[in-house]
Simulated scan of single mutants.
Amino acid sequence: MLNGFLGNVVFRLFDALPSPPLSPFGRPGSRQTPEKMARPFAHKAGVSLKWVKSISVRFCPFESNVESTRHFLECVFARKAYKTNMNCDVKTEVRHDGSEPIIDVTFVDGEKLIMKAANLTIRDMLDVFKSKCELRDLKS
Score class of each variant (00 low, 15 high):
2 L>R: 12
3 N>T: 15
3 N>C: 08
6 L>S: 10
6 L>M: 14
7 G>M: 04
8 N>M: 09
9 V>A: 08
9 V>R: 08
9 V>P: 06
11 F>S: 15
12 R>F: 11
16 A>N: 12
17 L>G: 08
18 P>S: 12
18 P>Q: 13
20 P>E: 06
21 P>C: 06
22 L>F: 05
23 S>Y: 04
23 S>F: 04
24 P>G: 13
27 R>T: 15
27 R>A: 13
28 P>L: 01
29 G>P: 09
29 G>K: 10
31 R>I: 12
31 R>G: 06
33 T>S: 15
33 T>D: 05
33 T>G: 08
35 E>K: 10
36 K>V: 15
38 A>V: 03
42 A>C: 09
42 A>I: 11
43 H>V: 11
47 V>I: 07
49 L>S: 03
50 K>F: 02
51 W>I: 02
51 W>A: 12
54 S>R: 08
56 S>L: 11
56 S>C: 07
58 R>G: 02
60 C>A: 09
60 C>S: 14
62 F>C: 09
63 E>Y: 00
65 N>T: 10
66 V>F: 10
71 H>M: 13
71 H>Y: 11
72 F>T: 04
72 F>N: 01
73 L>H: 03
73 L>Q: 09
73 L>R: 06
74 E>I: 00
75 C>D: 05
76 V>M: 14
76 V>E: 03
77 F>H: 15
78 A>P: 01
78 A>I: 11
79 R>G: 02
81 A>Q: 07
83 K>Y: 05
84 T>L: 07
85 N>W: 13
87 N>E: 11
87 N>W: 10
88 C>E: 05
91 K>E: 09
94 V>C: 09
95 R>N: 14
95 R>T: 15
95 R>C: 15
95 R>G: 12
95 R>M: 15
97 D>A: 07
99 S>L: 08
100 E>L: 14
101 P>W: 08
103 I>C: 02
105 V>G: 08
107 F>R: 08
107 F>H: 14
108 V>G: 00
108 V>M: 11
110 G>Y: 00
110 G>A: 00
112 K>F: 04
117 A>E: 06
117 A>V: 05
119 N>E: 14
120 L>Q: 08
120 L>G: 04
121 T>F: 13
122 I>C: 13
122 I>A: 06
125 M>Q: 03
128 V>E: 07
130 K>A: 08
132 K>E: 14
132 K>N: 11
133 C>R: 03
134 E>R: 11
135 L>A: 15
136 R>K: 14
137 D>F: 01
137 D>I: 02
137 D>A: 12
139 K>D: 02
139 K>V: 05
